[in-house]
């Protein structure tokens, strides 16, 4: 798909890391962040530093990430509410008594949720959608997953385009839904869209059969990834994991 994708074309060392390495590194990094004890404030500082370092190598401006990180907004709400609704001993913050445990829990969600979304954005900004699927394929994702994901990314724009055209046709004839109960035409449009998608699926399947489809997507050539590239690509995750290990080490 092309519309709304976060990928920012570039040729930085971060862009060039093989997608399977980047995927594993991103998952490992976020898991490291999530596993870090919430009181280890310094560790989150290191994590943020690592993320900033990756951005500077990737050549993606900080402002771009900041704008897109608002996707996390609903969770900020949970983080803000927790100090007031949680139990346990209370502390005074700006004259308001809040739960100490809730305050830490709110901080925990805010810090980890933010770092998590920033790491995921880094992955999305530096990896083409098709390479993400290719990375999953090389990481042995099941054949059905690769097929569904490949076709979904190819056709979501085509289907969204059909959706737009039916919407314009509807508005051209005076439709103006503002309440849910006026949205009947939209939902019936959804029914039509399902039928078109199904029929296109049948035609695509025929076109695939005609070119020898036997149940799995050809993976294409994959140059073997040397140990050095794994280490280089995984180094940010390694630093985050080290910070976690030190923070979680029982003293």
């Amino acid at each position: 798909m092309s519309g709304g994708v976060l990928y920012r074309p570039g040729d930085s060392p971060v862009h060039r890391i093989p997608p399977q390495v980047k995927l594993l590194a991103a998952f490992a990094a976020v898991l490291g962040v999530v596993a870090t004890p919430r009181e280890a404030f310094w560790a989150f500082g290191i994590d943020l530093f690592v993320v900033l370092a990756v951005w500077s190598v990737a050549g993606v401006p900080v402002g771009w990430f900041a704008r897109r990180a608002v996707i996390e907004a609903p969770f900020v709400l949970l983080a803000v509410v927790l100090p007031f609704v949680s139990g346990g001993p209370r502390v005074d913050v700006l004259g308001v008594a809040v739960s100490q445990d809730g305050l830490l829990a709110g901080w925990n969600i805010l810090a980890k949720g933010t770092l998590g979304v920033l790491i995921a954005l880094t992955l999305a900004a530096t990896t083409q959608p098709r390479d993400l699927v290719l990375g999953l394929q090389r990481l042995r994702a099941p054949a059905w997953f690769v097929t569904i994901a490949t076709l979904m990314l190819r056709y979501v724009d085509v289907i969204a385009g059909e959706l737009r055209r039916t919407r314009i046709a509807r508005i051209s004839r005076g439709d103006d839904p503002r309440f849910l109960w006026q949205a009947g035409a939209v939902a019936r449009g959804a029914g039509t869209l399902f039928l078109r998608s199904y029929e296109r699926g049948e035609r695509v399947h025929r076109a695939m059969l005609a070119r020898g489809w036997a149940g799995h997507m050809p993976a294409g050539p994959a140059a073997p990834v040397g140990a050095l590239r794994w280490v280089a690509g995984g180094s940010p995750a390694l630093v985050i994991a080290t910070a976690w290990a030190v923070a979680a080490w029982p003293v």
Binding site: R154, Y155, G201, E202, L209, W213
Partner: peptide, 12 residues
């Protein structure tokens, strides 16, 4: 061999 391609379009 037909299910996954159809599912791909329906996921879209």
């Amino acid at each position: 061999d037909r299910t996954a391609p159809l599912a791909g379009l329906l996921a879209a």
